[in-house]
């Protein structure tokens, strides 16, 4: 068992009015090792906040998060986090960005660079190792950000709308890569997304959040084998079912 989210609530005090906004209310989730779980829901439902609380970037107002039985008190290199956008260090070139985490943790640079080149090859960026982020397209930057997190061998990966800015081909390619890595290395992945097709394609379970306050509305289990066929009836039915559920949530 990897993550235990117990009775997590989060209240924000909005700046000008001193009004309390309940962003999350009584979130309870257990996520098993090696599981791929997606968080979906209308915007403002607190799915990203939940992800950030699991990483340790934010503290819950109430409740606890445990990672392998240990209380989460702050970010850790055991939990890789991939941001939506623009998280590369602009003063480092691609390869130095990729080995940032390895450097921080005192790994020998020569070996790290060799591994980084292998990872860069898997996303087709081996010729861009010496380039700077400002010279890359949005999709290329995001691929670098993804392998920068993957290379650290963290037990889990938390991804916040990581693929949302990519074109569809790159997106599909990276989805398959993430799936492969997740299954091979038994990584636990929590994936926040707006793209229901993506959630159904990737996830073992989909958690649907409701809005204001953010609560877990429903959890879908998906038992289909990988690679999943986007055209098959079962897939399409699931997608519409999830969309319907979010729609209902939105009307509440």
């Amino acid at each position: 068992m990897t993550f235990e989210v117990e009775n997590v609530s989060k209240t924000f005090v909005s700046g000008d009015s001193d009004e309390e906004v309940i962003a999350l209310k009584d979130i309870n989730l257990t996520i098993e090792t090696g599981e791929f779980v997606s968080f979906v829901g209308p915007s403002g439902c607190g799915k990203t906040t939940t992800l950030r609380i699991i990483e340790g970037f934010e503290k819950p107002t109430e409740g606890t998060v445990k990672d392998d039985g240990e209380l989460v008190t702050g970010p850790s290199n055991q939990r890789g986090f991939i941001f939506q956008n623009y998280s590369l260090f602009p003063w480092l070139n691609v390869i130095d960005n990729v080995i940032f985490g390895l450097n921080i943790n005192g790994k020998p640079e020569k070996e790290s660079k060799k591994r980084a080149m292998e990872y860069l090859k898997t996303v087709g960026l081996e010729d861009f190792a010496e380039r700077y982020p400002s010279e890359l397209s949005g999709g290329m930057k995001q691929r670098v950000a993804i392998i920068r997190s993957l290379i650290n061998d963290s037990k889990s990966l938390l991804m916040d709308e990581t693929f949302s800015a990519l074109d569809i081909q790159t997106k599909h390619k990276l989805q398959n890569q993430i799936l492969k890595i997740c299954k091979e290395q038994k990584k636990t992945i929590i994936f926040v997304t707006h793209d229901i097709d993506e959630a159904v394609y990737l996830s073992d379970r989909i958690v649907v959040f409701s809005r204001r306050p953010g609560m877990v509305k429903k959890i879908f289990e998906i038992k289909m084998d990988h690679p999943r066929d986007r055209q098959c009836q079962e897939f399409e039915d699931l997608v519409s079912e999830v969309i319907e559920m979010i729609g209902e949530v939105e009307e509440d």
Partner: peptide, 11 residues
């Protein structure tokens, strides 16, 4: 975001 990224690498 860069500070959080570095934190998530255990800086």
């Amino acid at each position: 975001v860069l500070i959080e990224a570095a934190e998530s690498f255990g800086a």
